[in-house]
């Protein structure tokens, strides 16, 4: 036990914690993005996908959730410890500071990380804990194969309605941009921390990480941008037939405010 504590409390051990939890999280992010992008397909795609996830056997959903939540917790807690220790290691700052090579992204991991953490909490409440905005009213009983016995959540509509609130969409875009920054250093860093990188692969992995970050950003950000275009400028991107009443209501409200 002592040796395990020694490992996870050592400076290198903390790197492993960051790298492994980061690996899980960055993998999840890509999967999550692919899932979300189904919103650009007819509504029953994303709705059936969500339904399948919800109805995984043996409580697998909770296992996955537990893994994800602990990854977030470990990643965040370790980051805060690291931040505090690193600050303490240089009590007096340089009067004239300069940086030769370290990227802006790498130097602001704590900032982007905290914004993302805040976002994650908000995001979970916003979309998963369903009593916000009364979105639990948005149900559907057709997943493309005819009527169902019990209605299932209309995720398509939930996403659309969620992003139709402009400041929510904006916060979302800012957060995924932070995620992009975070990943552009973090993904390459995983390999370094686990000792799986050398001078040749360093530059390749750094480029790969940058690409990864931007792919994730574009993938995620495309959805709120599309919703905003659809909702405010009337560009016909989404099929609103499954939640037309709620849509009309929101549209009227928005119009009334304007």
């Amino acid at each position: 036990m002592k040796s395990i504590v020694r490992l996870v409390t050592s400076s290198v051990g903390k790197k492993y914690l960051m790298a492994l939890s980061g690996f899980i999280l960055s993998g999840f992010v890509l999967g999550h993005m692919c899932g979300n992008l189904q919103v650009f397909l007819p509504p029953h795609w994303i709705n059936s996908y969500a339904h399948h996830l919800q109805s995984m056997p043996y409580g697998l959903l909770w296992v996955v959730r537990a893994v994800m939540l602990s990854a977030v917790a470990i990643h965040a807690a370790t980051a805060i410890v690291l931040f505090k220790e690193n600050k303490a290691a240089r009590p007096e700052a340089y009067r004239k500071d300069a940086t030769v090579r370290a990227s802006k992204a790498s130097r602001t991991m704590i900032v982007s990380g905290l914004i993302i953490l805040f976002f994650i909490i908000f995001h979970i409440f916003h979309y998963t804990v369903k009593n916000m905005y009364g979105l639990d009213q948005l149900m559907i009983n057709d997943l493309g194969h005819g009527p169902l016995e019990h209605p299932v959540p209309n995720v398509y509509a939930v996403m659309y309605m969620g992003f139709s609130v402009w400041y929510v969409a904006l916060f979302y875009i800012v957060a995924v941009f932070m995620l992009c920054q975070h990943l552009s250093h973090g993904v390459a860093s995983i390999f370094q921390s686990l000792g799986l990188r050398n001078e040749i692969w360093r530059y390749r992995l750094e480029k790969l990480a940058l690409a990864y970050g931007w792919i994730v950003f574009l993938g995620f950000a495309s959805i709120p941008v599309a919703v905003l275009l659809d909702f405010y400028l009337g560009v016909p991107i989404f099929d609103k037939s499954t939640f037309i009443e709620v849509y009309e209501q929101a549209k009227n409200c928005a119009g009334a405010i304007q």
Binding site: S11, G13, N86, S106, H185, G195, L196, R197
Partner: peptide
């Protein structure tokens, strides 16, 4: 402090020591 893979060290090292050696340390430590 802890290493967070900035690479500033390699950039200023007068003898051009690379992060590869840190990667090796990370492997060996694991």
């Amino acid at each position: 402090g802890n290493c967070t893979n900035f690479g500033e060290c390699q950039a200023v090292c007068p003898k051009g020591i690379t992060l590869d050696h840190i990667a090796k340390l990370n492997r060996d430590y694991a």
